[in-house]
């Protein structure tokens, strides 16, 4: 693990070992919060920051912590990080903080964070751990944002609604109404919509992976046929 290359780490976090699509970790906030694009982005950034900081700290102290007590120590690190992020969000993005509510403090219990601390950060150098946190966080954010956009478009017919919560007043008119007079498709906004949507996204990822895996085989078979 120690000699993993940076492109490899990035590929793992964003695609091959994506926390939401492959590891299926942290699904509770993922499913609960992604009712809109902006909500998904907010939680995604908060989770990414937590991952980067906790991964870096865990990697930095990995030689000081005795293996017997490592899990409680990781939990302490993650909890402190989340507390700092929660208080900062409360101060600077108060309205978004109110919408995301309990799911910001609950980042502590997001399994993918302690999973990365245990599986990667505690065994790798600081820079690799930092990169891994960033890649995993971005991979998670990408899924949150995709699912959020999907549910917002189908459920409400809009996109980027309430962008001012995140980007300040100049983003107040970013909201796109994609379908005029849309009646709303309530199922997409309700929890079942999140499960169905995530299932479909995972299915699409698997289809892409299968197509990719099949391609070299076809090439070989083609050569064999012409030979």
């Amino acid at each position: 693990m120690t000699d993993t290359s940076y492109p490899e780490i990035a590929r793992n976090g964003l695609w091959n070992n994506n926390p939401a699509l492959v590891q299926l970790l942290g699904l509770c906030p993922l499913l609960a919060v992604t009712t809109t694009f902006i909500n998904g982005l907010g939680l995604g950034i908060a989770t990414t920051l937590t991952l980067i900081i906790s991964n870096s700290v865990v990697s930095a102290i990995r030689k000081l912590v005795r293996p017997e007590v490592r899990i409680p120590v990781f939990v302490l690190v993650i909890a402190s990080t989340v507390t700092v992020i929660e208080i900062s969000m409360n101060a600077w993005f108060h309205d978004l903080y109110l919408i995301l509510g309990i799911f910001i403090p609950l980042i502590v219990t997001n399994c993918s964070i302690i999973g990365r601390a245990e599986a990667f950060a505690s065994k790798n150098r600081l820079r690799a751990a930092f990169t891994d946190g960033l890649a995993m966080g971005l991979g998670f954010t990408a899924v949150l944002v995709t699912l959020g956009a999907l549910r917002e478009i189908i459920g409400k017919g809009t996109l980027f609604a309430q962008a001012h919560l995140m980007f300040g007043e100049f983003a107040a008119n970013w909201s796109l109404t994609l379908v005029e007079d849309y009646r709303g498709f309530l199922l997409a906004v309700l929890p079942p919509g999140a499960f169905i949507g995530l299932g479909l996204i995972i299915a699409v990822k698997n289809i892409i992976d299968q197509r990719r895996a099949r391609r070299p085989v076809h090439a070989v078979a083609g050569e064999a046929a012409t030979a």
Partner: peptide, 8 residues
């Protein structure tokens, strides 16, 4: 049920 909860 999808219809009932989506389009009351």
């Amino acid at each position: 049920v999808v219809l009932l909860i989506s389009f009351p």
